[in-house]
């Protein structure tokens, strides 16, 4: 066990934890999207979990920092908040929020983060970016909604660790990056139909089982 101080509060935590895990375990919320406990190495792509740590000249992502004895952490400095708000606005510029038709359980993780940061669910002052991607992409037994996806890669990791097969993967690059489904034959579609772990892990309902869709949408 090591002792760390977060926002003036002394915590005693297990030493193998990251700062993010230690805070979440002790009821201190740090915005995060791509963190997944089962992942051996943090993905660190969402850039939301910034914290200030004494002795560092700039905010660092808390999912990549292991706790050390005597560490002094602040989760709400102006620099941290500025980076978090900026990253959140960037994500929202590709995620037009349609709360009424969005099937996530409310409040979704994005709503919680927005409330925590005190910002709206719009990208203001940035504008929405239309990448010209389709509303729905057919993934065999699933539908994928590219304009909801925040590319946290939780689905990809979960699928691989459960099925030992790379059914889901990243495709394209840069601003056009999206998740893709790869059916290599050999009963892959059956494996996928019987699993749905990705659907459950997705924080933004970007992956949906086809069965959940009203027949009017399914064509």
């Amino acid at each position: 066990m090591v002792k760390i101080t977060v926002d003036g509060k002394e915590l005693e935590v297990e030493e193998h934890l990251t700062v993010l895990e230690a805070c979440l375990k002790n009821g201190i919320f740090i915005p995060h999207l791509c963190f997944l406990k089962t992942r051996p190495h943090p993905h660190a792509s969402c850039r939301l979990c910034f914290v200030s740590i004494e002795g560092y000249d700039r905010p660092v992502t808390s999912c990549t920092e292991k706790v050390r004895d005597g560490m002094v952490v602040r989760t709400d400095t102006p620099e941290v908040r500025s980076l978090q708000k900026s990253a959140f606005k960037l994500l929202m510029s590709l995620h037009p929020c349609h709360a009424k038709i969005c099937p996530t359980e409310k409040p979704c993780l994005l709503m919680r983060i927005a409330k925590h940061l005190g910002v709206g669910l719009n990208p203001k002052p940035l504008e929405y970016i239309d990448r010209g991607l389709p509303d729905l992409v057919d993934f065999g037994p699933l539908y994928y909604v590219p304009n909801r996806c925040v590319l946290c890669a939780k689905c990809i990791h979960t699928c691989r660790s459960i099925n030992q097969k790379p059914l889901l993967t990243f495709a394209r690059r840069g601003i056009m990056t999206m998740v893709a489904y790869f059916d290599g034959g050999d009963g892959d579609a059956d494996v996928c139909s019987n699993c749905k772990a990705c659907v459950e892990i997705c924080p933004v309902a970007a992956l949906l089982p086809k069965s959940a869709f009203p027949s009017s949408v399914e064509k």
């Binding site: 792509s45 939301l48 960037l90 504008e127 970016i129 590319l151 690059r173 601003i175 990056t177």
Partner: peptide, 21 residues
């Protein structure tokens, strides 16, 4: 640089696109 972005992290993937726009 926007075309060079691999697309992994939020700032580079979306941020450079906004700068360019």
């Amino acid at each position: 640089t926007q075309k060079e972005s691999c697309g992994k992290c939020t700032f580079c993937r979306i941020g450079t696109k906004h700068l360019l726009d």
